[in-house]
């Protein structure tokens, strides 16, 4: 309207420059990890770093415990039970999501439909759970889990994971239930439905999309959990994030490519669901505050 075209063009150029900068900052690390995972030991430590190189698949073979030609990864022998960690993370992830849904969804519904003091108490509790340093809980859990024979077992891990997952799930689901107009449920009650029937036949179908997204986000949160698994598991139930630390001696050395391949594999399942949960994620981020 009154801005002159030259000024406007300069504004656009600056805008696109900043967007490009931001994109590089966000995406380049992924690009670098991904390309690194296809580099041979020699290409991986090349100085200056190589942007073009011959694709080298032995890293992935080694990470997935497949046969690797002797010597192709240098002299370092790394024994990381990475594939097993992957399997463990899947089992623990699905188990934790199942427990969190069974326990958390009815609780979220009850919270969404009750008066404010209860909500405040629970909100406070969640916040507290979130800000307790992990080791203030995990050290005694380690003691307890050893006594109860829950140490390094799937069910022990699933139970301990709930401290991160349950508040997150309840908070997200509470929001979705609160969004349902109360009139719909009241109409069902007038028709003679019990509280459970209203929940099961009216509320749950209405929140189905949110429920599905929350379940995926909880799975992602379980997949990302590191400290709990690091302390409460050893070999049998070790999750993949912990198995990844097994490469820590290698990613500074010649076989960074192997560590990069493992890192890429760890985040692969999450990249696959990222698009799906994109519009749901913000709600979970501000756990315990506002809506």
């Amino acid at each position: 309207m009154r801005t002159n075209p030259v000024k406007k063009t300069i504004g656009r150029i600056i805008l696109y420059f900043l967007v490009a900068l931001f994109l590089i900052w966000t995406i380049f690390p992924f690009y670098w990890l991904f390309t690194m995972s296809f580099k041979s030991p020699i290409d991986a430590i090349s100085n200056p770093p190589k942007f073009t190189f011959k694709v080298f698949l032995e890293n992935y073979k080694a990470a997935l415990n497949m046969y690797v030609k002797p010597g192709s990864l240098g002299f370092v022998v790394v024994q990381v039970e990475f594939l097993k960690g992957f399997k463990n993370s899947m089992i623990i992830g699905f188990g934790s999501v199942a427990v969190a849904l069974a326990v958390g969804v009815p609780a979220a519904y009850a919270l969404a439909r009750t008066r404010s003091r209860l909500q405040k108490t629970v909100g406070l509790m969640f916040l507290f759970v979130r800000f307790i340093p992990t080791f203030a809980v995990v050290i005694p859990l380690f003691i307890l889990w050893r006594q109860l024979k829950l140490y390094d077992t799937y069910h022990g891990m699933i139970l301990a994971y709930q401290m991160n997952l349950l508040p997150y799930l309840i908070w997200m689901m509470k929001g979705y239930f609160a969004d349902i107009p109360i009139e719909i449920e009241e109409a069902a009650k007038v028709d003679g439905c019990t509280a459970w029937q209203v929940f099961r036949n009216v509320a749950l179908p209405l929140v189905a999309p949110g429920l599905a997204a929350s379940a995926v986000l909880v799975f992602v949160a379980a997949w990302n959990t590191f400290e709990i698994g690091y302390i409460l598991s050893q070999t049998r139930a070790q999750p993949v994030t912990v198995a990844l630390t097994g490469y820590s001696s290698t990613y500074t050395g010649q076989i960074q490519g192997l560590a990069a391949a493992a890192g890429t594999l760890v985040m692969l399942p999450e990249l696959l669901v990222a698009g799906y949960v994109q519009k749901y994620i913000v709600r979970g981020l501000t756990l315990g505050h506002g809506k």
Binding site: T26, F30, F226, T241, L244, G263, V266, L271, A274, I281
Partner: peptide, 9 residues
């Protein structure tokens, strides 16, 4: 995407 991946990665 950066938010979703494990911080160890």
């Amino acid at each position: 995407v950066p938010i979703m991946i494990p911080n160890v990665v």
